[in-house]
Design a protein around this nucleic acid. Structure first.
Length: 780
DNA sequence: CCTAACGTATCG
DNA sequence: CGATACGTTAGG
């Protein structure tokens, strides 16, 4: 044994032992050297490129046509330089190419020839450390055991490397060959996620997550909610926002965002011992029952959301409630196993109809094979994993709006999709089902509902009272934010139609009926439902139930939330007064091609600037009220076409050209911004400029001038508390063909008389009325 | 031969 | 450091 081991070492590792152990750098000698041919491979280092499994949901999708990489493709009119696959199609489980052979015996994988049990030893396994591809059976090293990486088919840390103790380091360094977390995505969090891994993979995400937020918030800002209840007029526009004291706080927040040390400390607190040895954790995890695991897998999503909601209310977040995205999270701590309250039985029934990753890398017989013993690196055997992945994906399936489909072509997937027209939203704001709205209004904590009633509270300023900008909570420590996540596209296949019961029968009530019921639940309640069983879990993930996701004032935006959002593919997303970072936002936007409504009021300009580089062509409503630091210059960045105008690169149109509803309350913008808006938003129908100190009659003149599109497109304008606006503006509004709603409340220089005169003069064509003092509304 | 796209070098 | 470019591989 020892003999063979050393022989192997000699054989494989001859060239540069040290070099490899120092991060095992790929020989960097130019692009062409990246991959060597099999012949060369025996002297480790070079790696075989992996290829699509062609079976996973991602592989089965069609290109979205919307994402960064699609836009680059020739077929979508791009220059084709980037040569990357569509974001939505990034394979979940890239496989070894068919041509891969065992470095020892020179033969291909033979897993097809055997029963499950014995497959492992005859299938090809690629070592994520030395990159060798071997049949475990062909290895001479029998003593040491390999460590199977369940996240990637046919991937392990081979016994040799494992024996040589390279695991830990490499583990930190690298996920494994071919494992691509959409790493090329612009604005991807992945790199940071990787970085975090490098810093200490084993860090418990759960402990790391332990309420880093909250305490400070409440400490600093006991009056946080205050503004909501304050009436705008109380705060004279002259004293308008920009509360400077908060600048400091903001900076602090930003510091937290970027400050690594903070993370470390938190992390350390969480798990002081052995932070660098993920294996330990994996082993711990391995003890758990698969069945149970699966429940967890299914639950996590809902747990996460539940955790999220709960966290908003209570500070004593329990870790397990949110850390357990088993597929995504490599590092999990054992936690109190969650018993699904009801209907446990159906776990096994709703496995994915679609195939998972093709090869069952290191499947079942973990300790079984007599030979190279392979420990599980992850909790789930690969098969389970892929199943779980698929289920996870399917969960999202319905979340992908029909509208989200790229408009350029009709997707053939529709055969898989049941008709949802009944639920389809007609317009942006119509997205929320009324009953859901009321529900939330009544039954959920204010965090969930306070955003809604803009029509209800006076002036509709409730979300943006200028007096005190509620300080968005600071971001969670990086270790939380950067938790690793596989980018998983929303699923294609539909969830099961019937609910399997314990006795093997199915429940009498069909999914669509359940769905109707679910439709009456708040998101919070849905999260509870999602914990019932897998089937409910998937049903509850139906995008129809999540058209509008509200994270307004959510204390911290975590990676789990981000992926939860992606899976649900909401049409409307409220991130107002959150501490979302630029990176997070651009990551989100890039993955929500169908997003219609984006509310970012009270976020920092830094974050909002993510919109400058991402495109969201379908965006109809953009709320950037009270965005600190958003002035004319930033507005220009936001509205101007992409600067990269290389031929065929991108369209020159404004990224926000389809905006219908723009909310700019409380911004220090001037006519310069208005000109841009007029030029670049031809469809603009509703414009909120309340509390904009620089807006005056001339601005209104611009908006309503002959030749502008806004003149005809504007239906609603809010100029309340714009003190430079005078009666003169009303005469300008007479030119507007479609105007229905003019809000001039609390404009000191607007008189009631002028309003009445406006009504009188307009009455020839349109009947207007005074709904409130200086609030003009078309009567119909 | 072609297209797709992986993985890394390199740019800004 | 994120974004982009591109040589080269995989598969047909």
């Amino acid at each position: 044994m020892a003999l063979s081991l050393s022989a192997d070492e000699e054989d494989y590792d001859s060239e540069s032992e040290q070099q490899r152990e120092a991060n095992r750098p790929k020989p960097k000698m130019g692009t062409s050297a990246a991959v060597k041919l099999p012949s060369n491979r025996s002297a480790s280092g070079a790696r075989r490129r992996r290829t699509r499994c062609r079976k996973c949901e991602a592989c089965l999708r069609t290109e979205c046509g919307e994402c960064h990489f699609c836009k680059d493709m020739k077929k979508f009119g791009g220059p084709g330089r980037m040569k990357q696959s569509c974001i939505m199609r990034q394979c979940i489980a890239p496989v070894l190419p068919h041509t891969a052979v065992c470095v020892v015996c020179g033969e291909a994988g033979k897993e097809d020839t055997l029963e499950e049990e014995d497959k492992f030893n005859v299938m090809l396994m690629e070592c994520s450390i030395c990159n060798e591809i071997v049949h475990p059976n062909c290895l001479k090293v029998k003593e040491a055991s390999g460590v199977v990486n369940d996240e990637l088919p046919n991937c392990w840390e081979c016994p040799k490397c494992n024996y040589a103790g390279k695991t830990g380091k490499v583990c930190k360094q690298k996920r494994g060959p071919g494992f691509k977390y959409a790493s090329n995505l612009p604005g991807s969090l992945l790199k940071e996620q990787k970085a975090v891994k490098e810093e200490g993979e084993a860090t418990s995400t759960s402990t790391a997550k332990r309420k880093p937020e909250g305490d400070e918030i409440s400490r600093h800002r006991p009056e946080e909610r205050e503004p909501l209840h304050r009436h705008p007029p109380v705060l004279t526009p002259s004293t308008l926002p920009r509360p400077r004291p908060e600048d400091k706080l903001r900076k602090k927040r930003k510091l937290f965002d970027d400050d690594e040390e903070e993370d470390f400390s938190v992390r350390k607190k969480g798990k002081a011992d052995e932070p660098l040895f993920p294996k330990l954790l994996h082993q711990i995890k391995t003890e758990e029952e698969d069945q149970e695991e699966e429940v967890d897998e299914e639950e996590t999503d809902s747990l996460f959301w539940r955790g999220l909601e709960r966290r908003d209310r209570l500070e004593d977040t329990e870790d397990w409630a949110e850390d357990g995205d088993g597929k995504d999270t490599k590092t999990n701590f054992p936690r109190p196993p969650l018993k699904t309250p009801v209907l446990d039985s159906d776990q096994s029934h709703c496995s994915s109809p679609q195939a998972g990753p093709s090869s069952e890398g290191g499947s079942e017989p973990q300790e079984k094979g007599p030979r190279p013993k392979a420990r599980r690196k992850r909790r789930l055997p690969n098969k389970e994993l892929s199943k779980a992945l698929n289920q996870e994906i399917q969960k999202t399936e319905d979340c992908l709006a029909n509208e989200n489909r790229q408009p350029l072509k009709v997707e053939p997937e529709s055969e898989n999709e049941e008709p949802k027209r009944g639920f389809r939203i007609g317009s942006d704001l119509g997205g929320e089902r009324p009953h859901l709205r009321t529900k939330e209004m009544n039954g959920t904590p204010w965090e969930l509902r306070h955003f809604y009633p803009s029509q209800i509270t006076p002036l509709g300023f409730n979300r943006s009272s200028p007096g005190t900008r509620p300080l968005p909570p600071r971001s969670p420590p990086k270790c939380v934010q950067m938790e690793r996540h596989v980018i998983r596209p929303p699923p294609i296949s539909p969830p099961p139609d019937r609910l399997p019961l314990v006795d093997g029968k199915t429940h009498a009530v069909q999914r669509e009926v359940w769905m109707k019921l679910f439709g009456h639940f708040t998101h919070k309640e849905l999260c509870v439902c999602m914990r019932v069983c897998k089937t409910w879990n998937r049903w509850c993930c139906d995008k129809r139930l999540w058209t509008n996701i509200d994270l307004n004032r959510c204390k911290s935006i975590t990676p789990l939330m981000l992926s939860g959002i992606i899976r649900r593919q909401p049409l409307s997303l409220d991130l107002s007064w959150t501490n979302i970072s630029k990176k997070q936002l651009s990551w989100l936007i890039n993955r929500l091609p169908g997003l219609r409504v984006l509310l970012l009021s009270g976020c920092s300009w830094v974050a909002v600037s993510a919109l400058c580089t991402s495109s969201c062509p379908l965006l109809r409503t953009l709320d950037v009220q009270w965005v600190e630091g958003l002035k004319d210059a930033q507005m220009r960045d936001l509205l101007s076409p992409p600067t990269d105008n290389r031929p065929g690169q991108l369209d020159n149109r404004c990224k926000l050209r389809n905006i219908l509803d723009l909310r700019l309350a409380g911004l220090d913008i001037t006519d310069a911004s208005l000109r841009l808006i007029i030029r670049h938003m031809p469809l603009l129908s509703r414009l909120d400029l309340s509390y904009c100190n620089h807006i005056n009659d001339h601005s209104v003149n611009l908006l309503t001038a002959a030749g502008t599109t806004t003149r005809d497109s504007l239906t609603e304008i809010n100029l309340s508390v714009c003190n430079r606006v005078t009666d003169q503006s009303l005469t300008f509004f007479k030119r507007c063909g479609s105007i229905c709603h003019i809000d001039l409340r609390y404009c000191k220089q607007v008189t009631k008389m002028a309003c009445e005169q406006f009504i009188a003069e307009m009455s020839v064509s349109v009947q207007f009325g005074l709904k409130e003092d200086k609030l003009l509304q078309k009567l119909s």
